[in-house]
Amino acid sequence: MQSAIRTEELTKDYAVGFWRKRPHRALDRLSIDVAPGEVFGFLGPNGAGKTTTLKLLMQLIFPTSGRAEILGQPVGAVAVRRRLGYLPENPYFYDYLTAEELLGYFASLFGYVGPERRRRVSMLLDRVGIGAERRMQLRKFSKGMLQRVGIAQALINDPEVVFLDEPMSGLDPVGRREVRALMLELRDRGTTLFFSSHILADAEALCSRVAILAGGRLTAIGQLSELLAFEIRGWELVVADLRPELIDRLGDVVRHHAEIAPGRYALELTLAEPPERLLAEVLGAGARLVALNPLRDTLEDVFMKHVAEASSHRMTTE
């Protein structure tokens, strides 16, 4: 099947320095392939190259080398732009237009006219929660309101592929939940979503696949379940009616313990030995089993590990 988004060794050097310009590699040979209908999370610390990648995909900047395709056509083709939506990072539009006029203007660039244009504009502004303020000039909008307008304008043409650069930035908790719901709704309609974010909980809630970028390089990519699955880091054992002196006898395999109610303990076990033996011992001493759960890394742990690896790698190569 044709990919929705594909990059091949995509690389971008910025010229930095005032007197003597030298190249600064913002993105280093990025190759990714996103299938239609996927929700793809693009994660990475500040300065990782996320915005750079999105700008390359929108052809706002030209790559130093490598190539990128959207819906099977080279980026920049006008035919492709008809079918995509883009929310820039910290969007900014025209001071003197109202939200309604801005969306109307963008809708007309797609060829919508008359009642159809009006319908789309008001439907989308409703959808992102811009009420009567839609008749206000954008220079009077707050950051979060502008962000909402930015999301609305990215969807004005019912795009097949939507690129969002930090969609949750500047939004209040209600706004975040609304945008999350909106993204899920788009996913259910089969829209391909590609978004960058710092908020790992959003990625965990929304994405089918994520990529982690650090220092311009791809350090991890895969299904969330894959990335998180093999990273079990221990077990959590909850037992009731346990005599506390038994815990000391269990030894180092108990990394951590806490009494959560009288006689009821939560034990965090390392991977040093399988939990079955311990379980047998504890139950043999008269305790009751309440729960035994594997402790997995959260996306945050995975993220931290990959980012740390990338920066230590960079230090050794530089």
């Binding site: 995509l84 820039p88 963008f106 660039l109 304008q153």
Partner: peptide, 14 residues
Amino acid sequence: ERRSVYGVLAKPVR
């Protein structure tokens, strides 16, 4: 400078 150009140029506009 204000980056309002980003929104427009992602539309079908050469």
